[in-house]
């Protein structure tokens, strides 16, 4: 398999774990995998990306513009910021809940993410999910990183099996949080499946 997946969001949202699970699962399924992360100062509330590159065609750690076949966006404006990476007709799974930077809270520009989702709709195939709503049953938006993986997997866009991804979650999450993370993944998976069926019936 050759597939480039871009994960983007804001430092602290758990993008790195999502990237490790995807890469680990792809490796487990016998692929060559490379990935690259934002680490260091930029992590503190800044824009972050993870580039997951599956297959022997990927040479560099960063995905070239227009090559990513899937985007997992943890924040609507970060999805727009990284659209250049996405191949036309690709899927973007996008969280509609905005993360307002401190600069916006100070300047009161009224950023609420809505303009971003409207723009995304015009440009790409998108699945929108609201992290506040989907995470409510789990008690914290910290589970969003696992849910969004589930959504992408359920929509059949990761190219990896549900079981391999669940096994990676088991491997990379501390034991006492394993069950709740599995549930979060499966909840996302269901959303992804529904979206897929909806699209196929269109």
């Amino acid at each position: 398999m050759n597939k480039d997946i871009l994960i983007c969001g804001v430092g602290g949202q758990g993008t790195v774990l999502a990237s490790k699970i995807l890469a680990g699962a792809a490796l487990e399924e016998g692929n060559i995998v490379h990935s690259a992360e934002t680490i260091g100062m930029a992590q503190r509330g800044g824009s972050v990306t993870s580039h997951v590159r599956i297959g022997d065609k990927a040479r560099s750690p960063l995905i070239p513009f227009g090559k990513a076949e899937l985007m997992l966006a943890f924040e609507p404006s970060e999805a727009v910021r990284n659209l250049n990476y996405l191949k036309p007709d690709s899927l973007a799974v996008v969280n509609t809940a905005p993360v307002k930077p401190v600069t916006e809270s100070l300047a009161q520009t009224g950023y609420d993410g809505k303009e971003m989702t409207a723009y995304l709709k015009k440009k790409f195939r998108c699945i929108f999910i609201d992290s506040d709503a989907v995470c409510a049953p789990f008690g914290s938006t910290k589970f969003f990183n696992i849910i969004i993986l589930g959504v992408a997997a359920g929509a059949g866009e990761t190219g990896m099996s549900k079981e391999t991804l669940l096994a990676q979650i088991d491997r990379r999450v501390p034991e006492k949080y394993r069950e709740i993370n599995r549930q979060a993944f499966l909840a996302g998976y269901e959303i992804g499946e529904k979206e897929k069926n909806l699209n196929e019936n269109k």
């Binding site: 503190r44 509330g45 824009s47 404006s77 727009v80 910021r81 600069t103």
Partner: peptide
């Protein structure tokens, strides 16, 4: 790249947690 019509993006300088 063809997203020059994108809405203006919030800036995210790194901040103290």
């Amino acid at each position: 790249p063809g997203f020059s019509d994108a809405p203006s993006l919030p800036v995210r300088p790194p901040v103290l947690c």
